[in-house]
Design a binder for these strands. Structure first.
Length: 285
DNA sequence: CCGACAACCTGTGAGC
DNA sequence: TGCTCACAGGTTGTCG
C-alpha cells in the first residue's frame, strides 16, 4: 500500500475526474472491509455532488454536497457530508468507464456520469466510511491523528519535544500516527538512512539538531516520492491502471545484503515492533 | 503513558 | 506439482 505519497498521488489522479460530478450510484460487493459497510450508504450518497477531494494522513476525504435540499422549515439537514476512504495495506483506486466489469477484490464503486471510482483491495484492510456533516476532522478515524509532516509549525524543536518521553527505538516511534502521520514502513527506513540515524537509537536520545535533520529528510523523502508518482510495489497499481514507471529508488528498503549506496557496507535487516527495518550499520548511528 | 504484539485478510515466493 | 510457512506498504485493541 499506499503510504502517504501513494495516497497523495492517488488523490491528485482522481480529483479532476470527480470534482463537480453528481453521484448516480453506489455499489458495495463485500459485507465489510476494516468495518462493515454502512447499509444506508447508497441513499446517503445518491444525488450528491462531489466537491473537493482532500487528504488527511493516509485517508482520502471526498466532499459530498446535497445541492437541492428541500428541507422543511426547521428541519436541520446537513448539506455537506464526507466520504472517507482508506486503502489499508493493499488498496488501490481507479477511475474507469461505468460499464467496466468488476474483478475479484473490487469491493466498492462510486458511480458518476459515465464513469466510476473503484476500490480494489485484496486484503480488505481498507475503509469506506460516511461522515454525516462538515466536520470530518472529528471523525473517530481522524480525531486522534498527529500533525501532517508538512505542517508549518513542525521543526527540530517540535520533533525533539515530541520524542522526549519516547524511550524506545526511533523507527517504530516515527511510524506512530499519534505523533506524526504519513510515515509508513518504507519511508521510515528511508528517512532514517538519509538522516544518518540508527533505527535502534532511543528516540529521546536524538539531539534537537539531529531531529531537525530527520524532519527535513522525512519531508524531502515524502515529497520526492510524491513527485516521482509513488512507489510501485507488489499490488499497488496507479490510478490509471498502469504500474508507475517513475518509482523513487529505495536506498535501503528491501536491500538486505546489498551494498550501501554510500559506503558499500552490506545493508542489514531487523525486526522492530513486528515490522522489517532496513539500515546501514556504518552510515547510521 | 509507553511499547511490544496479535489480529484483521489474501497473495506470493521460498523451500521441501 | 503441491504443500506449508513466512512475510507483505496499516491500524487498532490488548496486555504487561
Amino acid at each position: 500500500m499506499p503510504e502517504l505519497p501513494e495516497v497523495e498521488v492517488a488523490r491528485r489522479a482522481i480529483e479532476p475526474s470527480l470534482t463537480g460530478q453528481r453521484i448516480s450510484g453506489v455499489v458495495c460487493r463485500t459485507p465489510k472491509l476494516r468495518a462493515p459497510f454502512d447499509p444506508l450508504l447508497h441513499q446517503r450518497l445518491l444525488g450528491r455532488r462531489i466537491g473537493i477531494v482532500a487528504r488527511r494522513a493516509k485517508y482520502l476525504l471526498i466532499e459530498c454536497v446535497a445541492d437541492h435540499t428541500p428541507s422543511p422549515a426547521g428541519a436541520e439537514t446537513n448539506p455537506v457530508g464526507w466520504l472517507i476512504l482508506h486503502l489499508g495495506m493493499s488498496g488501490s483506486l481507479r477511475v474507469c468507464a461505468a460499464d467496466t466489469p468488476a474483478q475479484t477484490h473490487d469491493h466498492f464503486d462510486l458511480i458518476f456520469g459515465q464513469q466510476l471510482l473503484r476500490l480494489h483491495d485484496p486484503r480488505r484492510f481498507g475503509a469506506v466510511v460516511w461522515h454525516p456533516d462538515n466536520t470530518p476532522s472529528v471523525n473517530p478515524l481522524l480525531a486522534r491523528l498527529g500533525p501532517e509532516p508538512f505542517a508549518e509549525h513542525l521543526n527540530g524543536q517540535w520533533l525533539h519535544e515530541a520524542l522526549a518521553k519516547r524511550r524506545g527505538p526511533i523507527k517504530p516511534a516515527l511510524m506512530d500516527s499519534h505523533l506524526l502521520v504519513g510515515v509508513g514502513n518504507i519511508y521510515a527506513s528511508e528517512s532514517l538512512f538519509r538522516a544518518g540515524i540508527s533505527p535502534q537509537r532511543a528516540a529521546h536520545r536524538i539531539s534537537q539538531a539531529r531531529c531537525a535533520v530527520l524532519l527535513a529528510e522525512i519531508q524531502k523523502t515524502l515529497s520526492e516520492a510524491i513527485e516521482a508518482g509513488g512507489s510501485s510495489l507488489r499490488d499497488y497499481v496507479h490510478t490509471d491502471g498502469g504500474h508507475g514507471c517513475f518509482q523513487l529508488a529505495h536506498l535501503v528498503y528491501e536491500r538486505k545484503d546489498e551494498s550501501c549506496l554510500r559506503c558499500q557496507t552490506p545493508i542489514r535487516q531487523l525486526r522492530q515492533a513486528g515490522r522489517s527495518t532496513y539500515y546501514c550499520p556504518k552510515c547510521q548511528r
